[in-house]
């Protein structure tokens, strides 16, 4: 039984980065900008926030105020993610560049920059930034001394501040997208920017907002990924930015569906990582490298979903097309 709760708890901690980054991608695409730079944004957010954590660890502030430090790291991740995403926004919106190529450039830049910087700061050849252990939320922080082991596994085994923040951001995302004037305008710019412009909405500004929100969420997602894997930041987020794209598509560009599909994808990731320890999984006739099979499944499922929903896809209609006022 404890294994099952362990899986649930792990699934949640891995679903957090997927959901945050996919929500980021959703805001960007809903405003009309395809954002395949999510992977790069995650790397930059994780890089800067991990350096923040490690600096706070060294000067003693971190161990003394662990959760305040973690909150600072989240802010750093969000802000640096936003700054980095400006590069995409500038190319895609002002220069009307090809959004996919611009995103590819950012994805190439981020990990290279991360390695070069880590190498320079930490000394030659040390490319992993260690994450201090005090960032974890412990049961004793809340004054709980004796807890039921199930509760303890569920809530305090892999518990980081990023999880409650992610839940808040999910709710906020839903409200912003569907219940505010801003959300309506943002969606209009992704569906029919010409029409939006004709009623006085500044399409460029809306698209900037969409991309910046994706930088904000993507940066936090990068930190959330790094704390989830736990072994330190190694200039990579293991393809989670691309997986988040799949989560976004699978979630049909809608916040609540995205949350659901993030959990679904995370579950497969956890099963892939721990399949040897899970007794009730099929053995597929003694197939080797079963973890690769589980890793592969979410992508295959996404492709199948794309086939079956292609006729009524909810993808924003104007995504990927630079908005040119002159062509209205």
């Amino acid at each position: 039984m404890s294994l099952l709760f362990n899986i649930i708890s792990l699934t949640i901690v891995f679903a957090v980065p997927l959901m945050l980054v996919a929500l980021g991608g959703m805001f960007s695409e809903r405003s009309g900008v395809v954002n395949i730079a999510l992977e790069g944004i995650m790397v930059i957010g994780a890089l800067c926030s991990c350096f923040t954590l490690s600096a706070l660890d060294k000067n003693g502030f971190g161990p003394a105020h662990p959760q305040l430090s973690m909150f600072l790291a989240v802010l750093v991740a969000a802000v640096t993610g936003m700054i980095f995403s400006l590069l995409l926004a500038f190319a895609a919106i002002n220069l009307k560049a090809d959004q996919t190529i611009g995103g590819t450039a950012l994805n190439t830049f981020a990990p290279a920059f991360a390695i070069v910087l880590t190498w320079a700061i930490q000394g030659q050849g040390i490319t992993t930034i260690q994450i201090p252990s005090w960032i974890r939320i412990k049961a004793s922080d809340f004054g709980f001394t004796e807890l039921h082991p199930i509760i303890k596994t569920l809530f305090f085994k892999y518990s980081y501040m990023t999880t409650p923040i992610a839940i808040v951001l999910l709710v906020v995302s839903y409200i912003v997208l569907y219940k505010t004037r801003f959300g309506l305008r943002l969606r209009a710019c992704g569906e029919h920017p010409q029409a939006a412009d004709s009623v006085g909405i500044n399409v460029y500004r809306m698209r900037y907002a969409g991309v910046l929100i994706s930088g904000f969420l993507g940066g936090i997602g990068g930190l959330a990924y790094t704390v989830a894997i736990g072994s330190g930041f190694n200039a990579s987020v293991g393809g989670y930015g691309f997986l988040a794209l799949a989560v976004m598509i699978f979630g049909n560009w809608k916040p609540l569906y995205i949350a659901g599909s993030a959990i679904f994808f995370a579950l497969f990731k956890v099963i892939a990582a721990y399949n040897a320890a899970i007794p009730f999984l099929p053995s597929f006739g003694g197939l080797k490298e079963r973890s690769s099979l589980y890793q592969m499944l979410p992508y295959v499922v996404t492709m199948l979903v794309l086939i079956f929903t292609s006729k009524k896809s909810r993808a924003p209609k104007a995504e990927g097309i630079p908005y040119d006022k002159g062509k209205r």
Binding site: L95, D98, G102, A105, F109, A112, V116
Partner: peptide, 16 residues
Amino acid sequence: ESTDIIVSVIIYLAAF
């Protein structure tokens, strides 16, 4: 990986 930084700038410029 320093070379990748240069490569990424080249891609970025190619975008426009």
